[in-house]
Design a protein around this nucleic acid. Structure first.
Lengths: 340, 340
DNA sequence: CTGAAAGCGCTTACAG
DNA sequence: CTGAAAGCGCTTACAG
């Protein structure tokens, strides 16, 4: 009933446990024959080394922590999947931590991950920079993904959110829109801020002023986007186009427009952000900004685990990827034939 | 730089490590004063016990494995979130494993989870019953969730998929549909099978025969659902209603219908399954079957970890929950004013 | 190349 | 109530 240990195979193979250990880890200090014999015995006994025992001796736990706001959010679900795949292919498993961007949850999870001696943490969540700053002090390798942390001296990879928003703005501008608004999720999150800034700045350059009132902070959910849009559509000078900082909000906007009897894109254009599967589930299909998830994750993983081995004490490295505009059906030239 | 250990606090507090251990674990064998003093020292040194060390002495790892087909699939993302939350509140963390329903992946993950000495595994994935059967042999606590495993002597909680499909059938039947078809994901997965069976049986009882050709196996993706629907819509006697075994397929169906110029629900009714956020992102909103995810997860967790402590050697227990029909906009009476 | 021994950070009987 | 000691399953110098 008890799992077989290194002692069992040593006894069975007639060698010392040190030799078994060496055989497993391929340290050169063992004869070929002996090695093969041991491997054979291991196979026969169906022996599987305990990673917790080996971790205790200073080796790695081969476990990573992934901090994200919410796995149930399609964008982060996709990130989680990508992380899982690349980690798994490198022998690691990952503990997913949904923080809801709440400081206390972030804190609790970090503590937990420390106690479990994970080999590293991938941070894709919001949460006070001060809290995350503590992390940088610790010996625990950390890299951020899909977000920046102000002044945090850790490596990370993100996509250029300012640029992504500019892409959206340029698209809308080119279509001829002048009255626009933005739906923004939690402004504590850097990526959200950047998207707002980028959009605003692009309009500014085009000579269009986006008032504070045109930027609506929303709960990051379909409902949140819907509520904000309803309010927007009630205004006398309602916008002809909406830029949403994520697709949950965009879906909400679509729904609000529909209920208000405003056709998209004819009466209202909307562009989302992230290019998740939600953007292909809506009708009309969402025009959106895509982030190269797989690549980001791949790079982040390499930064974390170190493809080279000496990445340890290096200077923090920030990689920024380029977003892309994906034009689908939810944007068009503005026309005031709204109330169809 | 090195994390503080139990020795550090013992020295600092002027006691033995055994006492520190006792203080932490609240074993009665320690004086109140001493206990509080120790706790204070722990606080001051910011001491956090190593769970891997404690796990090695026979205690739990407080880590669970969650096997699902794919976290990027909204339904499983929601399951993963629910599991994470309840696990976290009980002091556990969870390693998410996306298997794509592939035997080899299932196998690899199980092996990994064993090596990491997880305290239990939640199985929500497909994969050969034979493979999972091995699991039952092992001392590793296991419970299935949202699926059955034929003849596997383990506990589990699922919702009644046969019934859920019947609900869908009844709804469509009541609306007056007679020519129907079903889009089924991977038939190796029990839940999928049951949904097909349930639907078929209900029609049968109503005197309607569902031919094998009316049941289209699809890749479990939007694309998969779309392709199958396109084929279906080309048929001369095309169905007036579609039952999809999950919402990815349903979304695909919606898209196919749109491209074919067939209005939903007027020209074609479609009902999905799972009630994920996808069902509220589409236009029209999806009529679907809801599973009580949170409750299922809660019960599964209790079965796994044992709210009572002696659940160990008990007879496997299967809990089945009831699904619910959620009527939204994608279903209506059949009418042959298709080509609008 | 190989084995005896110490040690990783805890917990748990076992004496006192 | 408290501490010394053994042990969990490995790995890693260190001798041979």
């Amino acid at each position: 009933m008890k799992p077989t240990t290194i002692y069992d195979v040593a006894r069975e193979a007639g060698v010392s446990i040190a030799s078994v250990s060496n055989a497993i880890n391929g340290k050169g200090k063992i004869g070929k024959k002996k090695r093969e014999e041991i491997l054979k015995v291991m196979e026969r006994l169906n022996y599987q080394p305990s990673v917790i025992a080996s971790a205790l001796t200073g080796k790695k736990t081969y476990t990573l922590g992934l901090l994200i706001p919410d796995v149930a959010n399609p964008f982060f679900a996709e990130i989680a999947r990508a992380v899982e795949d690349i980690a798994h292919s490198a022998g690691y498993s990952v503990i997913t931590c949904s923080t809801d961007n709440q400081d206390e949850r972030v804190l609790a999870y970090i503590r937990l991950l420390e106690q479990k001696s994970v080999d590293g943490i991938l941070i894709g969540t919001g949460g006070g920079a001060d809290i995350l700053a503590q992390l940088a002090e610790k010996p625990l390798p950390t890299v951020t993904i899909a977000r920046e942390v102000q002044g945090l001296p850790v490596s990370g990879v993100a996509t250029d959110d300012f640029r992504g928003a500019s892409l959206a703005a340029a698209h809308l501008l080119a279509l001829g829109h002048r009255r626009m608004a933005v739906l923004a999720e939690d402004l504590k999150v850097s990526s959200s801020q950047e998207r707002v800034r980028g959009f605003r700045f692009s309009l500014f350059e085009a000579g269009i002023r986006l008032e504070d009132g045109d930027i609506l902070p929303c709960a990051s959910s379909i409902e949140g986007g819907k509520r904000a849009t309803i309010e927007l559509l009630r205004r006398s000078d309602r916008p002809t186009a909406l830029f949403c900082s994520n697709e949950l909000l965009a879906v909400g906007a679509l729904q609000a427009a529909r209920e208000a009897g405003i056709a998209v894109p004819t009466g209202l254009s909307v562009v989302g952000y992230d290019n998740t599967l939600l953007s292909t589930a809506t009708n009309p299909l969402l025009t959106t900004i895509a982030q190269p998830i797989e690549q980001m994750v791949k790079l982040a993983f390499e930064l974390l685990i170190g493809n080279g081995q000496e990445s340890a004490g290096l200077v923090p490295q920030r990689i920024v990827m380029q977003p892309e505009l994906v034009v689908r059906e939810s944007t068009a030239m503005p026309q005031r034939a709204d109330r169809e």
